[in-house]
Design a binder for these strands. Sequence first.
RNA 1: GCGGGUGUGGCGGAACCGGCAGACGCGUCGGACUUAGGAUCCGAUGUCCUCGGACGUAAGGGUUCGAAUCCCUUCACCCGCACCA
Length: 822
Amino acid sequence: MEKYNPASIEKKWQDKWFAENPFRVTEDSDKKKFYCLEMLPYPSGEGIHTGHARVYGLGDTLARFKRMKNYNVIHVQGFDAFGLPAEGAAIKRGIRPDDWTYANIEKMTRQMKLMGFSYDWDQKVITCNPDYYRWTQWLFELFYKRGLAYKKEAAVNWCDSCGTVLANEQVIDGKCWRCDHEVHKKNLAQWFLKITDYADELLADLDKLKGWPDRVKIMQENWIGRSEGAEFSFNVEGHDDKIPVYTTRPDTIFGVTYVVLAAEHPLVEKLISGQPNEAELRQFVDEVRNLSDVEKTNADSEKKGIFTGVYAVNPINNKRVPIWITNYVVYEFGTGAVMGVPAHDERDWMFATKYDLEKILVIDNPKRPLDLNEMDNAYTEPGIMVNSGPFTGTDSVKGKRAVIDWLEKNGVGTRKINYRLRDWLISRQRYWGAPIPIIYCDKCGEVLVPEEDLPVLLPTDVEFKQGALSPLSTSKSFNDCKCPKCGGHAHRETDTMDTFICSSWYYLRYTDPHNDHAPFDRDKVNYWSPVDQYIGGIEHAILHLLYSRFFTKVLRDAGLLDFDEPFTNLLCQGMVIKDGAKMSKSKGNVVSPEEIIDKYGADTARLFILFAAPPERDLDWSDQGVEGSFRFLNRVWRIVNIYSEQFSDAVDYDSNSLTDEEKSLRRAMHRTIKKVTEDVGDRFMFNTAISSLMELVNEMHTFQDKPINPALAREVVSNLLKMLAPFVPHITEELWSKFFEGSVHQQMFPTFDEVALVEDEVEIVLQINGKVRGRMTLPRGLDRAAVEKFAMTHQRVKELTADKKIVKVIAVPDKLVNVVVK
RNA sequence: GCGGGUGUGGCGGAACCGGCAGACGCGUCGGACUUAGGAUCCGAUGUCCUCGGACGUAAGGGUUCGAAUCCCUUCACCCGCACCA
């Protein structure tokens, strides 16, 4: 027998696949479509890592399985190719960002082919290609025309180390998501996309995403952060100005004892100037304004404030309350000013306690009356309104509405819904991204680059320097241009777009990647979309997944496509861990897929990664486990070759004429088909699917040195290879080609026969008081009474119940009998 | 602090609807073959045991004829959010 030689087998079939492309995507099929998508990689210089091997291994197995289940499958790969590391390489090593990027793409494409992933490489999408970013720019213009892209000056998140601004979503714990460098605020004129226009729908439609993990939906819900309440204004004593505040607790409005402003609030300047302690006030304001985001947004940091010397008037009861400036009001949320209700808000309680401000109880606990003197914390639960003028005695939940009604009737406030979500800042002061297609004309102002002039190409005459502001601004050829409207002198926007824009629509381009007159064809995108199964890391729970949902909704409203949500089902795979830690160069625990391929072959690498853990859990890498997977493939190789010696041309056999051992093997085969079909198709339990295939192979060993019905032998081998094919495509194709016709990957996945699963006899467990005390074998399908009767006459049961009183007998047909005795 | 998740042999993990806990793999031990085995094949492998059994799914309690699974309390670890009024 020939030895299993993965290296030569894998090369042979990969050469054939990638030359003939049997995975070609076509829309002209009677089959049901299936869009299998994995999050596209960034072309890193390190090549593919085990995390890539895991996501793409999962996706590829599913895609191959679905093809064999007679689906018309689209399975495409691409590269999210813009981004800072390319510029880093340019600065550090003097390589051009595009050269560096394309070299990495070459490398990773080669490695993915080595893994045997069944992508239609003719559909490959690279986001830094002009034929792609032309349409990214086109989409920006679409947003602009729809009033969803605008430029404004704002205090934005700035990362010194990356030399660019960041979106809110890209600031993690006050640090840059990419380099972990601390982020600080900077006032800059920047481009934003109006994602807040879609806040409501993005929130509401989470309900439609039945196939998404709850935790992802909860994270998005929290991120959008919808809250309902009221906005109303305090008059300022001695000034014409008003202070609008936002509250979710209008029911506590009679408990207001002060008003607080964020240090950035526009009124601050006016209120403090001319105050006797102006210098002191100014110093406090400057201090707070200069706090880093980390210090400012940390709930644990001490609440500090200073009295402005000015008073405001509560519109509901004309109570005069002091106006304070604090460090705990978030300027960007609501109105940047808050009413202080110490008795019913924890922060206000702490603040008022510290500065000895008045506390008024206005919500009482209906179960146990409250006394401010005995409270050491705010009462934040609902209750009954007290000390609240005409509202006294009202249930606080109903009181919210009543107070808002009063505010609206008296013209001092309105009902208001607020979101935590802010607009998406998309300008980046970097080179390696899609240029924002805007021209600034001295006469005409901000002008879109005409559609026919797209793409705005990246120039090559730029300087890459650490810390330099937008390298594009160093390019004269890029900067200077003519105004498309008046023909006069103008210059270009030198910022590029956030790469997350590029990845917000790539899955749409996959359906029509060569289109040169539109981003994608409407019929094609509607045929394939939405994505039936999306697979990727949890780290994109908010960023990429929220942005993509936003894009889809905007493009739907623009009439470019006809669906509301891009991804029907989402699977978030776990990390790959080794020796208790995430693989990383600094820990020295990195295993590269390519070294596993070199040693054992891609099939072993794929098998191990799918077998070692269920997809959503973290995977513990084990070199011995890899060894075990390799061993299993050798066993498959061996047993299939042994069985093949007994094959006949006959395909039919009479199942009744089989020996008991043959019947048992046949049953095992059908059982395995059922299990694998359900585990892969319905449950995503690739690990248990593989274990059941291992059981079948173990079972096949019964006949390794014994004659077997030749037609059965043939059937078992054929079905085994078909079932293994999605997991280990090379070895199965090789063995298939030796003994059968065509390609195993073009076969239908085997179906199971319920009848063949059924055994004539079943083992019944006998329990006394719930403990297993014996077993008996009975014909299948006996009813409760019959099973009970057999059990009660069973020797062991009789012995153990002889001197006891039988209280109850529970009989479950084909399963167990439990005798309860005293 | 709030929200979500996880907890099962020496290890990775099974047990899908409340019905034989530990499938499958790794490791370990034993056997066969062999000049040899770190290859391959066969077998054993939760703990304790007086060999009848007893105990056992983070800990404690509850519901049930019966609980890893349902309910309550507690603990540990992981992830997300964290002054959003």
